[in-house]
Simulated assay, not measured.
Amino acid sequence: MTRDKYQARLLRNEEYPLWDTLVRKSPQGSIFSNSEYLQILADATNNRLQMVGCFEDNTLIGGCSLFVRKKRLRGTHAVSNGPDTPFCGFISQKADPGRVRKSEMEYTECINALCDYIENQNYSLISVTNSPELMDIRPFLRRGWRGAVAYTYYIDLLYADIDSFSTSVKKSILAAQKKNLVYEASKDAKSHCGILTEVFQHSHALPPFNETVIKRFLNFFHSNNSGDMRIIKDSSGNILASYIWLWDNNRAYAWSGGALPSTEFQDGGANKLMFYSFLEELKEKGLPEVNIMHGNTPRLTSFATGFNPRLVPYYIVERNSFYIRCLKGLQHYLNR
């Protein structure tokens, strides 16, 4: 098997349906790798979307999506993720579990072809955060790329019920249920952004997306039946929490949301009831699991672990130019 058998190049716009078909079939594919999702994100972050595909005999068998942007004094950066998009990165066709040697060789050749193309673009920095389902980063390490690990939390819906949660979470949910709170669907992007703005203000930050972008995402999710928004209101009609959840053919994702501070729910009961209520909805959809994120932010892990999830690693691969390595070295020296 030779590398010449695999050809990597940029995909044309008319080839994006081929990409989306591969995303649906690939173990690493998710809603975050959908071409329309990626284009909305690229527009919102003022980046240029590049979809690199690997072909074998004119068949698309793998690829990598990148957001490309010129950085002043730092060259051109190519990264795979963005706001509220924890991973996407490299995807490949499903391997044959009965032919491990052949599958690993094909996977390695596909990754090498993609890396050859990406490296030849002379980006000053390449950073790709991959799906948790991409477990083999050896081809990148052999090429001199660096690897790092991040974490997320999965909840197995088959075993997720209120009795499986921590004692404090269970107590908060039961108390919130007695307060006559209203859990319902919503399409109000403005109120969702209002909640996010208040939540982010506590960290002296701005929410990742404005109302226009949230509306565009919601239109995409609704048109593809891949996401929806839920809110929790009190008896006076005040919105206490708002969340947008996504799903694909593999699992669901806690995508965007937050809860307002409340003297009545100082234990976060409204927020916990929101999570529990949507988990029950997702069970009815027949989805096997939920990726609830929060694995890399210490202030959020205590909330996530109360739902008794399992910790799942995922991998970041990076390649920096000599110039960027020198800049980082200088910055580290100056910060000592």
Results as ranks from 00 to 15, higher is better:
Val290Lys: 00
Arg310His: 09
Leu287Tyr: 03
Tyr123Thr: 04
Ala252Cys: 04
Ser236Gln: 13
Arg310Glu: 06
Asp267Pro: 04
Asn112Leu: 10
Val213Ile: 15
Tyr159Ala: 14
Phe55Cys: 02
Ala8Trp: 10
Tyr37Gln: 05
Phe140Ile: 04
Asn130Glu: 08
Ile40Ala: 01
Tyr253Arg: 04
Pro208Leu: 00
Ser127Thr: 08
Arg143Cys: 08
Ile316Glu: 13
Tyr123Asn: 02
Ala8His: 06
Pro139Val: 01
Tyr151Arg: 04
Ser26Asp: 05
Glu56Pro: 00
Arg12Lys: 14
Ala241Lys: 03
Asn291Ser: 08
Lys215Asp: 10
Phe265Val: 02
Trp245Gln: 07
Leu240Lys: 08
Thr152Phe: 12
Asn210Leu: 05
Gln28Gly: 10
Glu281His: 12
Phe307Lys: 00
Gln331Pro: 00
Lys102Cys: 12
Leu141Asn: 07
Met229Asn: 12
Thr305Lys: 14
Ser131Asn: 13
Phe165Gln: 08
Leu174Arg: 15
His202Arg: 15
Trp247Lys: 02
Ile137Ala: 06
Ser127Leu: 04
Glu119Ile: 13
Asp96His: 03
Lys187Leu: 03
Gln7Pro: 01
Asn250Ser: 13
Phe32His: 02
Ala241Tyr: 02
Pro207Lys: 12
Gln50Cys: 12
Val199Asn: 10
Lys215Leu: 07
Gly295Ala: 01
Thr2Cys: 05
Thr85Cys: 13
Phe200Tyr: 15
Ser30Lys: 04
Ala44Ile: 00
Asn112Thr: 07
Tyr154Lys: 11
Ser235Ala: 08
Asn249Glu: 08
Asp248Trp: 01
Asp248Glu: 07
Lys285Ile: 05
Asn122Asp: 15
Glu104Tyr: 06
Arg142Met: 12
Asn271Ala: 08
Ile40Met: 01
Glu14Asp: 15
Lys178Glu: 15
Asn291Asp: 15
Leu10Lys: 11
Ser168Pro: 03
Asn130Thr: 07
Val23Ala: 01
Pro27Tyr: 01
Ile292Trp: 08
Ser80Lys: 10
Arg12His: 12
Ala304Val: 05
Pro208Ser: 07
Val182Phe: 07
Ser168Asp: 14
Ala185Arg: 14
Leu174Thr: 09
Gln39Lys: 14
Asp156Ala: 13
Leu22Trp: 04
Leu279Cys: 10
Glu318Tyr: 02
Ala8Ile: 02
Ser30Thr: 15
Gly268Glu: 08
Ile195Glu: 05
Lys171Gln: 11
Ser26Lys: 01
Gly82Glu: 05
Glu280Asp: 10
Asp57Phe: 13
Ser186Val: 00
Gly89His: 09
Met293Phe: 07
Glu36Ser: 11
His222Thr: 12
Asn120Phe: 04
Leu18Thr: 01
Met274Glu: 07
Leu157His: 01
Phe140Ser: 05
Asp43Asn: 15
Tyr243Gly: 02
Pro83His: 11
Phe221Gly: 03
Thr197Val: 02
Glu14Ala: 09
Ile155Thr: 03
Ala8Arg: 06
Phe200Pro: 05
Trp145Ser: 11
Ser256Ile: 11
Trp19Asp: 03
Leu196Asp: 01
Leu38Asn: 13
Ala8Met: 08
Met105Thr: 14
Tyr183Val: 15
Ser242Trp: 00
Ser321Met: 06
Met105His: 13
Asp188Cys: 03
Lys190Pro: 00
Glu281Thr: 10
Pro313Val: 02
Trp245Asn: 11
Leu260Phe: 04
